[in-house]
């Protein structure tokens, strides 16, 4: 098939970006979206032009590297999938495709379609873990977890940290990402001791990073490649309310959390 592509090109973070027009003839329907971009890049390199930079790695939908907004939808038109797993059979001959980076104040553009998602790491660093010293764990079957809790936790734990939730949210909120981690750890008995402290620290950090708030639009859930549900956001809110008034913050005052 033949395609017309409008791709966002931006040399570096501080440069101004804009759309550039490309056309591709002979795109196979069995190609993945990224392979289609590979073909374009091959043409550009042979011409001596700089190829379109996009982040990618595993190309099987699990590493969370790839992602762009394709025709107005993060990861493109197919639900429950990452861009690398989107195949060209979902497009038609002579289609016009707009490709732009995930846009968020907290995700500055580094080059073309590559954004810096370091904010996600910083959110995890303030509490997205269960603190356990290497070698100090009890026997694994000493902790029993109901299958229901375990399955729900796993649903949340499937998050690949791609940032599509942020990209899709009209408010640029990272609530789905944050709450998925809070649910994953908060639903397991191992995660209880730090549960409230964790919620407070992670939610506050997300805000400080410049993400918006949750208006319960549900758009994040609709574009999430792992179909993580917004019911996790409700659970996170609940923990945050409790944490705000119930976490013992020490006698010294406010900054005991995080």
């Amino acid at each position: 098939m033949k395609l017309t592509l409008h791709i966002w090109r931006q040399k570096a973070r501080s440069n101004k970006g804009g759309f550039q027009l490309y056309t591709l003839a002979d795109v196979s329907e069995h190609m993945s979206f990224l392979e289609m971009l590979d073909v374009l890049n091959e043409e550009l390199v042979v011409k001596g032009e700089e190829p379109v930079h996009f982040e990618h790695d595993c190309r099987e939908g699990i590493c969370g590297c790839c992602g762009a907004v394709v025709n107005g939808e993060p990861h493109g038109p197919k639900s429950g999938t990452t861009l690398c797993q989107l195949h060209m059979r979902h497009f038609h001959d002579n289609d016009e495709i707009w490709i732009e980076p995930f846009r968020s104040k907290a995700f500055p553009i580094l080059k073309d379609l590559i954004v810096d998602r370091g904010a996600f790491d910083r959110i995890i660093q303030v509490g997205g873990f269960i603190a356990v010293r290497t070698g100090s764990a009890p026997d694994a079957n000493g902790i029993t977890v109901s299958k229901e809790s375990s399955d729900l936790a796993m649903d949340a734990a499937e998050c690949i940290g791609c940032g599509a939730c942020v990209a899709s949210c009209p408010n640029g909120s990272a609530s789905l990402f944050v709450s998925a981690k809070l649910s994953h750890l908060g639903l397991l008995p191992q995660g209880q001791p730090e549960r409230l402290k964790r919620a407070l620290a992670m939610i506050r950090t997300a805000e400080a990073e410049g993400f918006g708030y949750c208006s319960n639009y549900g758009e994040c859930e609709a574009v999430c490649p792992k179909r993580i549900g917004i019911h996790h956001i409700a659970r996170a809110n609940c923990d945050f309310h409790k944490a705000s008034f119930m976490v013992y913050q020490g006698t010294g005052g406010k900054a005991a959390v995080g």
């Binding site: 966002w8 907004v69 707009w98 968020s104 104040k105 640029g172 758009e219």
Partner: peptide, 18 residues
Amino acid sequence: QAWGARPVRYAKRVYREV
């Protein structure tokens, strides 16, 4: 706050759920 979270708008935008 929400407006500030996305200083550059998308050229194209399709909502699935909102």
